[in-house]
Design a protein around this nucleic acid. Structure first.
Lengths: 201, 201, 201, 201
DNA sequence: AATGAATGAGGGTTCATTCAT
DNA sequence: GATGAATGAACCCTCATTCAT
């Protein structure tokens, strides 16, 4: 890639980043091409030159965000942390929260751009799902997950928790400063409402 | 209330219902007054005569939906079902899912109409929160909820599950036909990932 | 007129008065039927029942105001005050200023409702003009108006002064408290810029 | 200024001119952006691109017209015509009448756009007022204006005449073809109703 | 390649007016 | 006779998009 193309790619990337930031805060519908152009310090038309249309930009953003999400999750799941830390990381960790957030972004993408649903479904199913499957499998093997529970139920539980966690972003961000709260939540996640003391393990 | 006012209230209600249905599917921003007027079979000016502005309509819808949500939750929580059924009803039951859905509607209300945040916060805090408190309290007393867990953690867990449940609407709607899945989910909710057989209770 | 019709006439009159007050301040165009109905404490439709349309109301107001203006001017001109006082009264006096104001109202009536121009022209020409003619005639006879000046020129001068006086309402209202200013203006009116001391008369 | 900017300025100017013409005839309130766009042969969005809003356009027009009025008046007052001709030019001349007309435009600007009052007041006070002051001062020095009259009274008289002259546009436009009428009006202005023959000067 | 200019479609809102009670 | 309900037309404004430079 020569200097010319690099500059071009940089500009494209700065537009993408501006778009992602605005989309995250205001959703796809409320952000205009003009807003993005302003934030990225380019003319509107430049965006059209690079992405063709607003739909094109949204599609590009969706792909970018999903890819990043898959990559980051993969690093955690196939990394060598202890299993419980992986679990926590996937579900509650700050790094992941950005991803959760972006997961939410995908939801609105499906709502506002139905024609994009298939793209998202495909990537989600093929990539994310496989990652979660592996995570659950590891949990079963290591005894952290009850063997009687169906794979489907566990994945649904994961999805519920992951998605729900996003909705409570602010409270969750307190987990880092309130260790009792973090401990309790982990306990709830592992042992449920009826519970068992973590220490008694 | 004479026939005049009744008809007026009927029309207002039909506008409200049309609005709620559209808002639920497309969000506040994407639905135009014209869309609602069309669905409700009235002129769009009629909407202005009744609700003053789009903001006015949104505010009215928010109030209506929240009130309904509070009322329905109250019926369940202060009803005389067994505790576990209440728990399930609040979190997973189909009847409640509509409410969950509408809870999500509130989220987008806050995002798109920040000036309305206070109204929602107030109702939510004052009403919903108190209901959940009572539900948790009952759970503690009856031994369904571990006493070592802080109230804050439990409520956060509830919120995560409730909000997350919405995101998985379609799967959750299978619970009614797939009793193994339902049982597993309940088990996860009560005993966590590590689990314990429900039967061993 | 029985009690019934009197009440009806009262309501009509209160609508008229509300309309006049609003028209004076905001002009015909900016005042809505709703505004007038609100100020007169009646339903919009009542205005339609009485005046047929907004145009009808405007027409009625124009007629009413013009008639009043003619009557008031007639009282002054055919009254028995000294001539100079009549002159002053017609042109600068507070009582007349309301009339001036309403004269301005007529201007905007012509501008916004061209079809009404003829009505105004007719009344103005036939009534007001005749009054001014008589006033000028009396002035000539009594030596207050130079005989070499054409009737047309004098009437134009009158019109200019009358209309111009409206535009400076606020300043003019000071005339009553600043007698030097009033004296000077009268002097300017009678003897022009080059002037002559009133006392030297 | 390159060809790009020149074309832009031309289009802006043509919009301004269309707006001024329409505003003069129908007032600010009655003229829609669509009307102006049609007259200027552009899309109404172009007007928004150039002036931001209707208010923005009105503000621009006000500034433009006021500046022109100040400039034209200055040329006359500081020019080297005989004093009486300056006087006549400022008050009655056709060229000035357009300005008078535009002065009236300012009146309605204040009425319909109160927030603009300060802008107008400022320019009017600072610029126009100073010009009139200088004109009066010159008149006093050259003996055309009686020394016993207060500056305030004279300026009020000027204002009345100037404003009144606008209201009688049509008649005044006859001054150019009816020299007797013009002579008489000048006489009235300089020597008042009681008068003195101009020839006796 | 990048930009300012220009636009058609559509959204929220107001108003004069008619209809049904 | 008086009123609240309902409406079509028109207005201001925004946005995604194309054109000309």
């Amino acid at each position: 890639m020569n200097g010319f193309e690099r500059r071009k790619e940089q500009k494209k990337e700065s537009i993408r980043q501006a778009a992602i930031e605005l989309f995250k805060v205001f959703g796809f519908g409320k952000v205009s091409i003009g807003d993005i152009a302003h934030k990225a310090n380019v003319s509107h038309v430049t965006i059209y030159n690079h992405f063709g249309s607003k739909d094109g930009l949204v599609r590009d953003v969706v792909r970018t965000v999903l890819s990043g999400l898959v990559a980051k999750s993969g690093e955690i799941i196939y990394g060598d942390k202890p299993y419980l830390e992986k679990l926590e990381a996937i579900i509650f960790s700050k790094a992941e929260l950005a991803g959760q957030y972006q997961g939410e972004l995908m939801k609105t993408a499906v709502r506002d751009y139905p024609e994009m649903a298939q793209l998202i479904e495909t990537m989600w199913q093929n990539e994310i799902d496989k990652l979660i499957d592996d995570l659950v499998e590891e949990g079963r093997e290591k005894g952290y997950i009850h063997k009687g529970l169906s794979q489907q139920a566990i994945k649904l539980y994961f999805e519920i928790i992951r998605n729900g966690a996003f909705s409570s972003l602010e409270t969750i961000s307190q987990l880092q400063v309130d260790s009792k709260l973090a401990e309790d939540l982990n306990s709830l996640f592992l042992f449920g409402l009826v519970g068992r003391d973590i220490k008694s393990e």
